[in-house]
Design a protein around this nucleic acid. Sequence first.
DNA 1: CATAATTGTCATCTA
DNA 2: ACTAGATGACAATTA
Length: 413
Amino acid sequence: MEAAAVTSSLQNKLDLGQGLSFDECLKIFADTFQLEAPTMTYHTAIAPSPHIEVNQNFHPTEQLPAPETLQNTATNAENMQEMEQVWEELLSIPELQCLGNQVDGFADLSMYPNQEPLTETVHSYMFHSPVSVMEKPVENAAPVFSNDFAGSFVPNVPTVNTNQTFNVESFCDDIFTLIDPKMTNVPLTDNSGQSLTELLNEPVDDIKDLSMCKAFNGNNPSDYNDSDSGVSVGTSPCATSPGQSMSSSVYGDAPFGYSDSDMDDMDSTPETVQAKNPTEEFPMSITEDAFYSLSPFVPLDASFETESHNSPETELPVRPGHSKTPFTKDKASSRQEARFTRDEQRAKALNVPFSVDTIVNLPVDDFNVLMSKHQFNDAQLALIRDIRRRGKNKVAAQNCRKKENGEHCGAGE
DNA sequence: CATAATTGTCATCTA
DNA sequence: ACTAGATGACAATTA
């Protein structure tokens, strides 16, 4: 039984403790059903979602699927029923719940085949935060999400033609190209190199974008509440009620596994997936996640691979004050990135549309202009200042230590 | 498990 | 008054 084969294959991997990415699962699918992974069409294989062409070259008028697409479509149709069965089995596996979310994301999309902004969002974002897609009230999915996002952080993001084939491998490649600084020369979010004008022109200046963070923050209020300096964040309207809102469903299933220990608070109420205030009705801002997803400091590849793990301690550090162990031993190699991710996370929590690097390295004048340009709330301002202060102090400390070592070497040795 | 080294952060001072 | 830099101290983590 192929269904059983797939299920057991995935389950086996999970049992082995391997990170199982969505991509990987799909490949298992493709292998089992003898599909050509590169041209596997999601709309028949998984859900009646539109074809999505993840191609850097977007051809708005190109509606006809490639020949191989049709072929695979037929092939998939033959296996569709069986695959549905597989999915049911797979979704019965707790570790693969995220797949269900992601598929649901596809399904949701399929319901709105013409919502290009949304599919555009999916293209660059869905795999990183399936829950957001899943839970996003598509009816309310204002184009502002994806539009702002695309315009803000991924100016080169290809527009998705919903009638085209979804190319699995190219999709993944593109995704990683987009999110992995190692695979792209484009500093997508590390806008430290950008001119102030460029930064200011970023359409992330709408306070709505910022408010949308509340959906995300909601599930992680302590995230910004735990500012190391203890400054500020308490004033955030986002930090209303710790332990509430979207909670672990987001972090647990979120490919990026924002399972910072800061989120411990929420673990007690994993089912509390609800907004605390009107602004939180926005499940998540594309901007924020996209931003951090693309952050050069986020170990995306690692987190992506472990997205299905749901292990709260597999990702990201904790602030020193926390008693929890921020890192597992296998994460040691990514300590540096994860360290930086702390502030990235905080910024993410408050939907600060700039990279930590930008915040830290921007000249005072430019920084002030930037702050005035974007209408940040108190919490965001405080956080940004903290990030800037910490970032600068970190550099200063490093310099100081270098200097100390140099002096010691020069004088004593 | 204990220890030293490393690193990030905070507090404080100075320019 | 504000910011940046320097530095000591502390805590967390790693080797």
